[in-house]
Computed example of a mutant assay.
Amino acid sequence: MKKMFKGLVLLSMLLAISACQKESSSAPKESEAATSLRETKNLDFRLAFNKIKITQNQTDFSGGSSLAELKSLFGEPQKTEQKPAGDVTLDVYTWTKDDSTVVVQLFKDSAIARSISQFSFNREAKIGLKDFNQLKEGISYTKAKELLGEPDLLSQAISSDRYDTQAVWTSGLKSQTTSPTIELKFENDKLTSKQQKGLS
């Protein structure tokens, strides 16, 4: 089958997530560190995002979450549009809750890309530079989550030749400065790029 939207989906999703990283106001205070994760603003929105299924079928792209399934998670989308991707057209749906935004791209009613931006967990600062340095090239996204926890921001997309993930952590990080971040990129579930800002 002819290769479809090679890399185009991922590019648009990654540009969006990079532009929408939510900055934390300061390093967590001791009292804030004890705050339960359950008190995270819009946690239900983030957990619903985790239920979105991205197709793993790189031949006909079937099997991803349908629009009906997405509506059962988020309700009616606030924005609907179509975007060209190579020789096909993708349906793009956007849901927003307060500052947080979920965008899902569908091809023939099957999710092929998802992203969440402007979201931040409320969790104790435990991850530092030592943990970041344990992230070795080639490890899986699952392994990275075991080391760092769930990312605050996430973008994933499948195309005819690869599966890409960009994950950003903005909370739970040890830092002496404001707005520390960890950003990881994976291709076919292998870490290919990592960078951090402000970790201690």
Rank of each mutant, 00 (worst) to 15 (best):
Ile127Ser: 02
Ser18Arg: 15
Ile158Val: 13
Ser117Met: 05
Pro84Arg: 11
Ile17Cys: 01
Ser110Pro: 15
Lys83Val: 14
Ser36Lys: 10
Gln166Pro: 05
Thr55Trp: 02
Gln176Ser: 14
Phe61Ile: 01
Arg114Leu: 09
Ser26Trp: 12
Cys20Met: 03
Gln78Thr: 11
Ser193Trp: 15
Leu67Arg: 05
Ile116Asn: 02
Leu129Arg: 09
Glu183Ala: 03
Thr89Leu: 12
Leu43Ser: 03
Thr80Tyr: 11
Gln134Tyr: 08
Thr96Phe: 07
Val104Glu: 12
Thr170Leu: 04
Lys79Ile: 00
Asp161Leu: 14
Thr170Met: 05
Val9Ala: 15
Asp189Val: 08
Tyr163Gln: 11
Glu183Cys: 01
Ser24Ile: 06
Gln195Cys: 02
Arg123Asp: 04
Leu10His: 09
Thr192Lys: 11
Thr55Met: 01
Gly138Asn: 12
Ala144Leu: 10
Ile112Asp: 01
Ala157Thr: 04
Ser115Trp: 12
Thr177Phe: 13
Leu90Tyr: 09
Gln105Gly: 13
Arg38Thr: 13
Lys41Glu: 08
Leu73Cys: 02
Thr142Arg: 09
Lys51Thr: 02
Gly172Leu: 00
Leu11Phe: 06
Asp152Phe: 08
Lys79Glu: 12
Ser36Thr: 07
Thr165Arg: 03
Glu23Lys: 09
Ile17Gly: 00
Gly86Phe: 08
Glu124Arg: 04
Ala33Met: 12
Glu69Ala: 14
Asp91Glu: 15
Leu70Thr: 05
Ala111Val: 00
Leu43Cys: 05
Gly7Cys: 01
Asn188Ile: 05
Ser18Ala: 09
Leu153Ala: 06
Leu135Ser: 07
Glu39Ser: 06
Pro180Glu: 13
Leu10Tyr: 13
Cys20Lys: 03
Glu76Thr: 15
Glu137Val: 07
Arg38Val: 13
Lys194Ser: 10
Gln176Trp: 09
Ser171Val: 04
Ser66Cys: 05
Asp91Val: 13
Glu187Ala: 06
Arg162Gly: 07
Gly7Ile: 01
Leu67Asp: 08
Lys190Arg: 12
Leu147Glu: 11
Ser62Lys: 10
Ile127Ala: 06
Leu8Cys: 00
Leu67Ala: 08
Leu14Ile: 11
Ser120Gly: 14
Gly149Lys: 08
Gly7Ala: 00
Thr40Gly: 06
Val103Lys: 13
Asp109Gly: 10
Arg38Cys: 01
Asp91Lys: 14
Ser120Lys: 15
Lys174Glu: 07
Ser24Gly: 05
Ala16Ile: 06
Val103Asp: 14
Ile17Asp: 05
Glu183Thr: 10
Ser66Asp: 08
Ser120Trp: 15
Ala16Tyr: 03
Lys126Met: 07
Leu129Thr: 09
Ala33Pro: 04
Glu76Gly: 05
Met1Tyr: 07
Gln82Met: 10
Tyr163Arg: 10
Gly63Met: 03
Glu81Gly: 11
Lys136Tyr: 06
Ile158Ala: 05
Lys108Thr: 06
Gly63Phe: 09
